[in-house]
Amino acid sequence: MDKKINGGKNMHFYITGDTHGNFNRIEEFCSENDTTKEDVMIILGDAGINYWLDNTDRQLKNDLSSLDITLFCIHGNHEARPWEAGDYEEVMWNDGLVYMEEAYPNILFAKDGEIYNFHGKKVMAIGGAYSVDKYYRISHKMPWFDTEQPDDRIMNYVEQQLEKEGWSIDIILSHTVPIEAEPTWAFIPGLNQRTVDKSTEKWLQEIYDNLEISEWYAGHYHVDSEENGIRIMFEDYDEICEKLN
């Protein structure tokens, strides 16, 4: 890895929840806010860009390449890891590694555990979650990815990075949430929660309990709410790490 792409000094960091391959609302946001590719839209997992692993994904990427914004995607559970999906390489961006395809420089995927510099704020990405519809997807031959949750290697790297920072980070960007922040009121009715693998949520809770932090954002649950100081986003927007004049 010897490539580096720099973010502009005047970039804005916007944030929203899952898109699942439909970027119509993102296109509208860009038009309404007069964004440029210097600006960043953080997608909190399940962007749906590396989903079918065929030409359908390629066509979506071609369409997204014309968006007047740079997409920065956290890993979700309904999508492949970048190294499973295409000709990605690791490049430096805002002081941390991201995955990028040379043909689509405005579509970036966060590397779990990397710490990015957003206008002087330390921002860490921690993606992944369990798919509650795993067995439905498998039985109906729909895409399901056995790399959906962080493995031991990823978890160790995240913890090592936090240790280096003295367990002090300004902002966490995750897909799911620490288990005590789950929006239980938004769970699928009738789904037996004892069948759901909560290992990622339990691990994130351990991180949360030991972490000095200012803000935490997550997606995954298709609701807009805040639990225990953790903001869960779906179709709302915000701007984080605003530049101070």
Rank of each mutant, 00 (worst) to 15 (best):
K3H: 13
M11Q: 04
F13E: 00
T16W: 01
D18L: 06
N22K: 14
E27P: 01
C30I: 01
S31P: 00
S31E: 01
N33V: 01
K37I: 00
D39C: 03
V40Q: 04
M41V: 10
I42P: 02
I42C: 08
G45P: 04
G45W: 08
D46K: 01
D46N: 02
I49D: 00
I49M: 01
W52R: 11
N55D: 10
N55T: 09
T56P: 04
T56R: 15
D57A: 03
D57Q: 07
R58N: 05
K61T: 10
D63Y: 10
S66W: 03
L67P: 00
I69M: 00
L71E: 00
C73Y: 00
G76C: 07
N77S: 11
N77A: 08
H78D: 03
E79A: 07
A80L: 09
A85Y: 09
A85W: 09
A85L: 14
G86T: 13
M92T: 11
W93F: 14
G96D: 03
Y99G: 05
Y99D: 04
Y99V: 01
P105C: 00
P105W: 03
F109C: 06
K111R: 14
D112Q: 14
N117G: 14
F118T: 05
H119L: 15
G120C: 15
M124T: 11
A125Q: 08
I126T: 03
K134D: 00
K134Y: 03
Y135M: 15
Y136K: 13
H140A: 05
K141E: 07
F145K: 06
T147C: 02
Q149A: 06
P150N: 02
Y157A: 05
E159A: 11
E159M: 14
Q160F: 12
E163L: 14
E163M: 12
G166Y: 06
W167P: 01
S168K: 15
S168F: 11
I169T: 02
I171N: 05
I171S: 07
I172N: 09
I172F: 13
S174Y: 11
S174T: 11
A181D: 07
W185V: 11
W185P: 05
A186P: 15
I188L: 15
L191W: 06
N192L: 12
Q193T: 09
R194K: 08
T195F: 09
T195G: 06
D197V: 05
D197A: 04
K198D: 11
K198V: 06
S199L: 04
S199A: 01
T200F: 08
E201G: 09
E201T: 04
E206V: 08
Y208H: 10
D209G: 04
N210R: 13
N210T: 05
I213N: 07
S214P: 02
W216H: 10
Y217F: 13
H222E: 05
D224H: 04
D224Y: 02
D224G: 01
E226R: 10
G229A: 10
G229D: 03
F234A: 08
D236F: 08
E242D: 05
K243F: 07
